[in-house]
Simulated scan of single mutants.
Amino acid sequence: NPVAKAINYMFEKDGRWEAFTRFLDDGRLCLSNNAAEHALRGIALGRKAWLFAGSQRGGERAAFMYSLIVSAKMNDIDPQAWLADVLARMPSLPVSRLPELLPWNWSAGSARQVAA
């Protein structure tokens, strides 16, 4: 029976059952990995298109931009609005203030205040 095999697998080695039930003690842990798989779906769907980034440097730029966009999403920010604001504000900001534009420091309210 496949269910019996799965249960036996959980008890074969020390630590598997404790690792499996850890979510019961820590409410921050999720029972499934659906969120991680969903986050990786875009990468899996786009990998054929990204094979030809033009060069090593082009691939590095694409990875950098993708990480910034995902960071914006993780901070509950619309990536398109954030990127449009950042690209508009970057030329007028001194380099020392660029960290203000990172997704975890950026807010839509501050973007409207600067625009006004």
Rank of each mutant, 00 (worst) to 15 (best):
H38K: 12
L24M: 07
R28P: 02
F20E: 02
A53E: 12
R89A: 15
D76C: 06
V3S: 10
W104Y: 01
E60V: 15
L102E: 06
S67F: 06
S92K: 04
C30N: 00
S67D: 11
S67A: 14
A39V: 12
Q80T: 14
L68S: 06
R61K: 12
A108G: 03
I69K: 02
M10R: 11
R28G: 10
I43E: 02
W82I: 06
G109D: 13
T21R: 09
S71I: 09
F23W: 05
R61M: 15
I77H: 01
V95T: 08
G59I: 05
W17Y: 14
E60C: 13
A81Q: 14
Y66V: 11
R97W: 00
P103Y: 04
S110N: 09
S55E: 11
R61N: 13
L98S: 03
S107K: 09
Q113T: 14
M65W: 15
S71N: 01
L40D: 07
P103W: 03
N75Y: 02
W106H: 00
N75C: 04
L93H: 03
K73W: 13
V95H: 08
M10E: 15
A81K: 08
A44V: 05
F52A: 08
S55R: 07
W17P: 07
E60D: 13
L68H: 08
G58H: 11
F20W: 10
V70C: 03
D14N: 10
L101K: 06
P91A: 10
P2G: 02
E60Y: 14
P103H: 01
S71A: 07
G27M: 08
C30R: 12
V70Y: 05
K48M: 14
L51S: 09
N8T: 08
K48L: 04
P2E: 13
E100M: 05
R57T: 14
K48I: 07
N1W: 01
F64V: 15
F64K: 15
L29R: 03
Q113Y: 10
P79T: 11
L31N: 02
W104S: 07
S92F: 02
R112P: 05
E100S: 01
L24N: 13
L40Y: 12
S32N: 08
A39T: 07
E60W: 12
G58N: 14
K13I: 15
S71W: 00
L83H: 09
N8D: 15
V3I: 06
V95C: 07
N33P: 09
G42P: 04
A115C: 08
L93A: 03
V3C: 09
M10F: 10
I69S: 00
N34M: 02
D76Y: 04
R41F: 03
Y66W: 09
L102C: 05
L68W: 07
A88P: 11
N105Y: 05
F20M: 12
T21D: 06
G109N: 11
A19L: 05
